[in-house]
Simulated scan of single mutants.
Amino acid sequence: MALRLVFSHKDLARVRLAPASDPLWELTLSVHRLHRPRSARSYEDWTGWVRTIGSSRAHAAARVLGTLIPVRGYFPDFLTPPEHFASIDEGIDIVVRTPRRRLREELGRLDRLPQWGQGLRDGARAQLDGLAAALRTYHDVLIGPHWNRIGQRLDADRNARVAQLLAGGTERMLSGFGPLMRWRAPVLEVDYPVHREVHLGGRGLLLVPSFFCHLTPVSLADDDLPPVLVYPVDPDPDWMRFPDQDRHLEALLGRTRAAVLRSAAYGSSTSQIARRLRVSPASVSEHVGVLRDSGLLASRRQGRSVLHCPTRLGSGLVRGCLDA
């Protein structure tokens, strides 16, 4: 089985990478991981951690979303809007403003829809507000504590793709997605659970790296929507960390400077670190300068951006705090 994406020359010129981690795709695909805890060892620590969370609201949100996002098969496209948004709140606002006609069409395709889902399908305000609350609670409690590490991993993948693009153009980048994807001009063939062929028709393609996507890339079900392809980026084995494990690094460097050093673990630009930590680029530049002068960070230019990466000393310092 495969998904065949057929490109024209216009499409090759309109391939783009998502500019930042997409919280709604991560949320949606994490629901799959949560309800299939043994499907991937990389997420077992996370699913185990979720079970220990004492928030009844978070567990209720996970149950609600599980009814809309089945482990296998179709789930509604409106939960993962293709528009770019800067925050989870903006994304949720787009979701709850989905036209009623589209809600009826997409929710009507689910094999099972609970009683409360009937009101959601009709666009009832109470059910839409309930969905918004479930999305926000799930994200804030179950994903939010790990969002910095997720963003680091996805930014690292994005930087590697940009390097391929700069070195050899769009086709070089598309050829670098093996073995899950195979570029044979003008077709990108993707391992997929069903056979589909989509002619992009000059609309281009948005490539979205995902932390919780596992093994198989994911696309929107409706071919008339802007083409999106979400592809898996494997987590590091030790990605699950807790704040108290970083206290030694923060005591040594200060909270923000320690966060900058950790955030640059895979190579990040000033703007990426600033966005991830929600601080100003000027503040990041100041901390980067101190870390670089101390021999903990090194900077190099990549295209129009400057990437900051830990030196061996900086990496060892972070790992030493983790080991502690």
Score class of each variant (00 low, 15 high):
Ala60Arg: 07
Leu5Gln: 07
Cys213Ile: 06
Pro186Met: 09
Arg300Leu: 03
Arg196Glu: 09
His146Ser: 05
Ala167His: 07
Ile69Asp: 03
Phe7Asp: 07
Val141Leu: 11
Lys10Ser: 15
Asn148Ala: 12
Gly91Thr: 02
Ala132Cys: 09
Ala134Lys: 01
Pro235Ser: 05
Asp93His: 02
His248Ser: 13
Pro37Asp: 14
Gln164Met: 12
Ile92Tyr: 00
Gly295Tyr: 04
Arg51Glu: 15
Arg247Lys: 06
Ala126Phe: 09
Arg33Asp: 03
Thr28Gln: 02
Val141Glu: 15
Leu220Pro: 05
Leu154Phe: 10
Val64Trp: 00
Phe177Arg: 01
Leu27Asn: 08
Arg276Pro: 03
Arg51Ala: 12
Gly168Leu: 08
Leu307Ile: 06
Ile92Ser: 01
Pro179Gly: 07
Pro209Ile: 06
Leu131Phe: 00
Ala185Asn: 15
Arg125Asp: 10
Arg172Thr: 08
Val96Ser: 02
Val15Met: 02
Asp89Trp: 05
Gly108Lys: 12
Gly54Gln: 06
Phe211Ala: 02
Val15Ala: 01
Leu154Val: 13
Arg161Phe: 11
Gly144Asp: 11
Pro19Phe: 13
Gly204Lys: 14
Arg51Leu: 11
Ser285Asp: 15
Gly130Val: 05
Met240Thr: 05
Gln245Glu: 13
Trp49Asp: 01
Ala282Pro: 03
Tyr138Thr: 06
Pro19Thr: 06
Gly54Phe: 07
Arg97Ala: 00
Gln272Tyr: 12
Leu131His: 00
Gln164Tyr: 04
Leu131Gln: 00
Ala124Gln: 14
Pro237Cys: 10
Leu29Ala: 03
Ala298Gly: 06
Arg125Ser: 05
Leu12Met: 12
His32Asp: 14
Gly66Ala: 09
Leu225Lys: 06
Gly204Trp: 06
Arg301Val: 14
Arg304Leu: 12
Asp223Gly: 10
Gly254Pro: 00
Ser315Met: 15
Ile273Gln: 01
Tyr43Ser: 14
Val228Glu: 09
Arg104Ile: 12
Ile69Asn: 00
Ser268Gln: 02
Arg72Asp: 14
Pro37Val: 15
His308Thr: 05
Val288Trp: 01
Pro235Ala: 07
Pro70Asp: 07
Gly201Val: 06
Ser315Pro: 04
Arg153Pro: 00
Ala40Asn: 12
Leu253Asp: 00
Leu205Met: 08
Gln245Gly: 10
Lys10Met: 12
Gly151Val: 07
Ala156Thr: 13
Ala264Asn: 00
Arg301Cys: 11
Leu313Thr: 14
His35Val: 15
Leu313Gly: 01
Leu12Gln: 09
Arg33Glu: 10
Asp246Leu: 02
Phe242Ala: 07
Val284Cys: 13
Arg182Gln: 14
Val230Trp: 09
Arg4Leu: 05
Arg33Phe: 05
Ala282Cys: 09
Glu90Pro: 01
Pro37Phe: 15
Arg319Pro: 01
Ser55Pro: 04
Val260Phe: 10
Asp140Met: 11
Phe211Glu: 00
Ala124Met: 04
Asp244Ile: 02
